[in-house]
């Protein structure tokens, strides 16, 4: 894949549809010196969904809903990789799990709602089988191997292969779940602008809270340089999500 194609793919779909070919040509002709501006331009457009042109009614809301679930999936992977123990849900201290509650409420608010029609549910079932069957099989195989006793204490290449398979499976599952949300968004009833804005703000608040909770722990009770990165990424994801939600206040889409 050329750099021009890769950079063009970073833009929101509606912008890509209109200007993708021209962006690609500009990047290809200007070379490496145009890369920073192209990257910043893409990031700025993602933060301002009210600037996206619409090729079809509701396109902005559909793309935002999928982007929102992508943020949630990325957060889940990040927490699995660098899981700060301070963010582990603890029933005895419910306040420390408030961040998770906010993210779940936000995801529920912004989720596309399937229509109450037989044909819609049949299509949804077809999409679910088509998109989610492969990751389900991969996860099932992983669980079976882990519990079979075949590999007790793997070492060397076997350990590396199992470790790689684990992360590829998690990543693949996250991508397929987002793909399923995209399929669902094509036929389901999408949340309105106000509800989607609320969902983005609530998820953003949850992420910022998680970042703050991790940063506080790092600073005061359990200094751990390994948690600085995850706290920063959570904070950035939260700020970006809140920024996009705030921007929806501007114009009707």
């Amino acid at each position: 894949m050329s750099a021009a194609t890769m950079f063009t793919r970073l833009y929101p779909p509606a912008v890509r549809e209109r200007w993708g070919a021209e962006i690609g040509r500009e990047v290809a002709s200007s070379g490496i010196r145009s890369w920073p501006d192209t990257l910043v331009g893409a990031g700025r457009l993602w933060l301002h969904p009210s600037d996206w042109p619409e090729s079809a009614p509701g396109q902005t809301r559909r793309v935002l809903a999928v982007a929102m679930f992508t943020v949630v999936a990325a957060t889940a992977l990040l927490l699995r990789a660098a899981g700060p123990s301070t963010l582990t849900a603890d029933p005895s201290r419910p306040l420390t799990s408030l961040w998770l509650g906010l993210i779940l409420v936000g995801a529920g608010l912004g989720a596309p709602v399937p229509l109450l029609r037989w044909a819609a549910w049949r299509r949804l079932a077809g999409d679910a089988v088509g998109v989610l069957a492969a990751p389900a099989v991969a996860v099932l195989a992983m669980i079976l191997i882990a519990n079979s006793g075949l590999v007790e204490h793997p070492t060397g290449a076997v350990r590396a292969a199992l470790f790689g398979w684990y992360w590829v499976t998690l990543g693949f599952t996250a991508v397929r779940l987002c793909t399923f949300v995209a399929c669902l968004a094509r036929t389901a009833r999408m949340p309105g602008r106000a509800r989607l804005r609320g969902a983005l703000l609530v998820i953003g608040a949850g992420l910022v809270l998680a970042a703050g909770q991790t940063a506080l722990t790092v600073t005061w009770s359990a200094p751990d340089a390994g948690l600085v990165g995850p706290a920063l990424v959570l904070g950035l994801l939260g700020a970006a999500t809140i920024g996009a939600g705030q921007d929806l206040r501007g114009r009707r889409r």
Binding site: V15, S30, R44
Partner: peptide, 17 residues
Amino acid sequence: RKLGPGSLYGALARLEA
């Protein structure tokens, strides 16, 4: 001087919106 692709097409998208 020219605008970079991100500035130019970002401006076009915003102005159209």
